[in-house]
Amino acid sequence: MTERRVKIMSRVGLHARPAALFVQTAAKAPMDVTVALDGRDPVNAKSILAVLGLDAHHGEEVTLAAAGDGAEELLNTLESILSQEEHGRA
């Protein structure tokens, strides 16, 4: 199991375009991926409804977790999405 604490830098928090990008990226991975706010149960990072339901705002920290081959790379990618301040349309 690989874990990573990441601070959300996006001005809109884990909502809107960053949330969509985050979920789409997680959904492409073969293994399970979770995201958790401190003190709350981890939720499925591949679920837009679960991720929006976290209601994670700018400046809050989340914990990402995944296991298996490629987990490290996946968490790197997800971390980079959360660390971006702005997200232009692809």
């Binding site: 809107a16 949330a19 969509a20 837009i48 679960a50």
Partner: peptide, 20 residues
């Protein structure tokens, strides 16, 4: 526009949500 695109794109992700 971008606004309409983002809303509709997010809605498509909702329809494909694995938890749902």
């Amino acid at each position: 526009d971008d606004a309409g695109h983002d809303v509709l794109h997010a809605q498509a992700l909702m329809a494909r949500d694995p938890e749902l």
